[in-house]
Design a protein around this nucleic acid. Structure first.
Lengths: 173, 173, 173, 173
DNA sequence: TATGAATGAGAATTCATTCAT
DNA sequence: AATGAATGAATTCTCATTCAT
C-alpha cells in the first residue's frame, strides 16, 4: 500500500493544482479531495493542513526551478542565453498561480531557504552575464532577479511573448 | 443628509482600501465598516454586497487612470514620453492590490467597458508612439498595453525602478 | 436591541448549562445554540469560542460562590457553622458539572484569580474555625479547603447527605 | 500466536491507560495504538470499538478491586480496619481516571453486574462494621459505600491524606 | 494476522448578508 | 437612516471505524 499511498499523494497534488487553477486559490479542501477521487480524510492524512498542501506545491515548484536552472547553468553558452532559456523553462509552469497560493501562507523556513538558494543562483548568473558584457551593468543583480521573477510569474507567461522579449532586450548592455 | 451619505460612502471606500492593504483582499465587511467608524448595516446601505464595494474601488481606479491618461495625452510631448509619464502616474496607486481584489469577481459589464476604454486609449497611444518611431514596431499595440499593465500592476511598482526602466528601454525602436 | 442581546446571552448560558447537564461536557456548540433558540452565529457573537463560553460559566459559578461565602461569613455564628452553611449553599449548584467543564480548558488567568480568592476566603475561614476550636487542628487549612471542594463538587451533592455529614463530623476537633 | 495475541492485548490496555492518563480521556485510538507499538487495525482486532476498550479497562479495575476486597475481607481484623485497608488499596490505582472514562459509555450489563457485586461486598462490610460498633449506625450501608466511592475516586487520592482521614474518622460510631 | 491508508460524519469557527430596533 | 445583532451556509480539521494489501 505504500505504492497506493504515493499514488494518492500525487493525485492530490495534481488535483490541487487543477482546482486552484480553475476555482482560484480559495478552492476548498473538500473540492480538491473530491477532484482527486478521495475523501477529505485522505487529503488530511497526506497533508496535515491546508498550509502543508500549499507548501508542498510551492516547494515542488521551487525545487523544479532550481533543478532546471542548475542544468541550464551547466550549458556552455553565454550567460545571457542561460537567462533567456531559464525564462522559457519557467514559462511552461503555472508560476503565477503558485505565487498567489504561496502568498496565503507566511513563508516557512523551508520555503525561504529554497527561495534564497534559487535567488542566489540567479543573482550569480546575472552578475556573470554583466561581467561577460551581455547584460547592462546599471542595475544590480538582485534587481535583475526581481525583474525575471515578474516576467516569469505572470498568468500566461510565454518564452516568446512581448513582455519577455522586451524585457530581455531591455536587459542588454 | 445627502452630504452625510456621500461622506459615509467616501469613508467606506477609504477604509476598504486601507483594510485591504493591511489585511489582504480577504478583509471582512465587518472589519471595513469598523475601520470606517460605521456599522455593517451602513456599509450595506451603500453597497448591496461585497462585489459592489470591490467594483466601486476597481471602477474608481480605472476612471482615475483614464482621467490621468487623458490629461497626459494632451501634453505636447512625444508619445513615448506620455507612456513613461503614465507609468509614473500609475506607480502612485495600489494597482497590484486593486487588481487582486478585482479578480475575486468575474468582471461585470461596467468594468469591462472601462477596461476597454482605457485599453483603447493606451493602444492608440502605443500605435502613435510606434508611428513616431520611438517604440519598436515588432510588437502589436495590444501587446504594448499588456506589457504596461504588468509593469504597472506590481506590488511596489515605481516610476524609476529597474523593471520600469528595463521595460521602457526594451520598448525602444 | 441591547436588551435583546443581553437576554440572548442569558439564554445561551442557560441553554449551555442545560445541554452540558444532559449531553455531557461534550455537548456541541450547535446543540447549545439550538437549545437557546438561536443560530450558531449568535452564540459565537456572544462568545468568541467554546473556551469563552465555558469560562463564562465557570466564572459565574466562582463569583456566585464568592458572593455567597462573603455573605455567610458576615453572619454572627461560629465559623464551623459558616462552613456547614457554605456546603449547603454549594449543594444547590451543579458544581460537579461545572468542574468537569472547566477541566477542558487550561485555567486562564481570570479563573485562577477567582479560584485563588475563593480559596483564600475558605482558608481563612478554616483557620478561624480551627482557632475557635470547632475544627480539628491536625490538618492544614488548605487541606480543609480541598476536602470541602471534594464534598461540594460531587454529582448530586446535598447539604444533608451522608458524605456531607460524615465529612463535617470528621472535621470536628 | 495465541501468546502473541495475548501480549498485544496487554500492550494495548497498558498503552491506553498510559495515554488516557497523559492526554486525558479524549486520547485517540490512533494515539493508543501507536503507544502500544501497533497499528490501529490491530487495536480494532482486539477491541471492536472504543467502548469495548474502555469497558475492558473498567472491568479490569472492578475485578481488581473485587479481588483485593475479597482478600482483605478474609483477614481477621475488625471490619473497620478492612475498610481502611480497602481505601488504601484503592489509592494505588487511577480510579478517578477510570471513572471519568467509564462515564463516556452508558454502563453495559457486564459492568453493572461487577459494580453491583463490588457494592454488595462493600455494603456487607459496612453493615458488619456497624454491627461490630466501629462505624456509626445513623447512615445506611449503601451510603457508606457511596462515601467510600467518593473518597477513593479522587485524582491523587492517598491512603493517608486529609480527606481520607477525616472521612474515616467521621465514620466512627 | 498486522498494518496503516481511506473514509466521511461531525465539530468548531468564520463571514457575507439580512433585519429588528 | 444608522446600528449591530442574528443567521446559517461554508470551511477547516479530527477521529472512530473500515478495508485493501
Amino acid at each position: 500500500m505504500r505504492a497506493d499511498a504515493r499514488r494518492n499523494r500525487e493525485l492530490i497534488v495534481e488535483a490541487a493544482l487543477d482546482r486552484f487553477a480553475v476555482s482560484g486559490p480559495a478552492a476548498s479542501m473538500e473540492e480538491i479531495a473530491r477532484a482527486a477521487g478521495l475523501g477529505v480524510g485522505t487529503l488530511y492524512r497526506h497533508f496535515p493542513d491546508r498550509r502543508a498542501l500549499v507548501e508542498e506545491i510551492a516547494g515542488r515548484s521551487l525545487r523544479c526551478l532550481r533543478t532546471g536552472l542548475r542544468s541550464l547553468a551547466e550549458q556552455d553558452v553565454p550567460r545571457r542565453d542561460v537567462i533567456a532559456r531559464y525564462v522559457g523553462y519557467c514559462a511552461g509552469q503555472p508560476l503565477a498561480l503558485i505565487k498567489a497560493l504561496a502568498e496565503e501562507n507566511e513563508a516557512p523556513e523551508e520555503r525561504l531557504e529554497l527561495q534564497d538558494e534559487l535567488n542566489g543562483l540567479l543573482e550569480a548568473l546575472a552578475r556573470q552575464a554583466q561581467e561577460e558584457g551581455t547584460v547592462r551593468g546599471d542595475i544590480s543583480p538582485r534587481e535583475v532577479v526581481e525583474l525575471l521573477s515578474v516576467v516569469v510569474c505572470r498568468p500566461g507567461a510565454r518564452a516568446d511573448d512581448a513582455l519577455t522579449r522586451v524585457a530581455l532586450d531591455g536587459l542588454r548592455a
